[in-house]
Design a protein around this nucleic acid. Sequence first.
DNA 1: CGGCGTGTTGATTATGGTCAAGTTCTGTGG
DNA 2: CCACAGAACTTGACCATAATCAACACGCCG
Lengths: 235, 235
Amino acid sequence: MSQNKPQLSCGSCVLTRICLPANLSPEETRILGGAVERGRELRAGARLIRAGARTDALYVVRGGSAKSCGLMSNGEEYVRAFHLPGEVAGLEGFACGRHTCEVVALEPMSYCRIPSGPLERMMATLPGLRRELMRLLGQSLEEAQRMRIESSTIDARGRLARFLVDLSSRLELRHLSPTHIRLSMSRRDIAHHLGLTVETVSRTLAAFRRASWVEVRARYIELLQPAALASLPVR
Amino acid sequence: MSQNKPQLSCGSCVLTRICLPANLSPEETRILGGAVERGRELRAGARLIRAGARTDALYVVRGGSAKSCGLMSNGEEYVRAFHLPGEVAGLEGFACGRHTCEVVALEPMSYCRIPSGPLERMMATLPGLRRELMRLLGQSLEEAQRMRIESSTIDARGRLARFLVDLSSRLELRHLSPTHIRLSMSRRDIAHHLGLTVETVSRTLAAFRRASWVEVRARYIELLQPAALASLPVR
DNA sequence: CGGCGTGTTGATTATGGTCAAGTTCTGTGG
DNA sequence: CCACAGAACTTGACCATAATCAACACGCCG
């Protein structure tokens, strides 16, 4: 693997302001970049992280998207999160030194890899990186806890609406259209992410369509009234 | 506040093997202990952390118990977690430098406080502490994500059973009876933690009682058949 | 063209929320 | 010690939501 060519350094990456280095000093960014390996292209369905594998690196999506999924006690798959470019996957691996969920590409995907060794060493010397990782973990925790309660308090409409609005804002942050969305994940993935069934996702989308809040054509979704979606009653 | 008397150091605390120092070297434990402040007794209902407050410290429950709770978009309170002795509260504050949830004592409670400043400095020099904090964050994340899905996949019986079994094992870890439990939280707290209503919690407990799985008398609960609770079908 | 995965729609049902009426518990003041 | 008030908890009746089961449409690839 040939990597770390100057022109690929974190500082000159289009994602700099969205990715891990977002809050790092130029110097810290340079050092971080020195430790980053550039992964090869993955095809849709390829596995980035295998559940049970030793936590030997963190991964950042560079292009495309991925899902993190785990297995429930009854064997059903559930989707913990979707990852867009600049988002970090594998953080849960810090829990016990092993990854507890599979990370799978949803479409052709590229990524960066930060091996644990250098990461640990940088954590000792780069306070900014330390803070950033703690921040990311705290934020994910925050998010998961909020969603946990909402999942059992907010109805299907509210959850799906929130999902669309959230996705939209994350796309916008990446200078993609916040209203014309091509979903890289299946209805099944969405359902398993929101704790619903495919049927309910389908029906709820249909309801949004009838209300003229969205335009749906297979995996293309256009948000016609994002405000309506964002302000759905909470039961 | 007079603190850090030798006999109160982390190394000689009864919680050492359960608390933050659990995986630290004696030397690291000593240094950590030097930064820990001993908080005064709180009465039931007193607030340990105020939502919105700057994250200026981490807190560890020493005696008694507490709940972390946030506010949902509709103003309803929800309970993120219950904290037993040796458990850390305030980790979510790492997300943005401010605490996003209230931490409230459920009964007379004592605690330790680790100010952010010393904590940051120790993070730079103590790799064990760094790893431990990352591990804690990862574990909480893990837990929250698992519960998030279960909350919308597992029925009320399963959720309540899981809650009791989990609580039981945490009590056992602290050398308290895993079967004779005095709940420090109200039914309302339990309901708001599991994403249920008080009525459902009450009814479900009654069902467990009829099945002779538990004995319930107000806040005293005896687990008669923990195995039955632990092996509840997942829908 | 057929077959399969993916998605949609309909009918039925079970789970848990809501509303309402008690009951028990706890602390307070006479 | 008892009376009482208010909170916490329990139980019942009813109903809304989403899961389940089943059939069908659509797109994609061989």
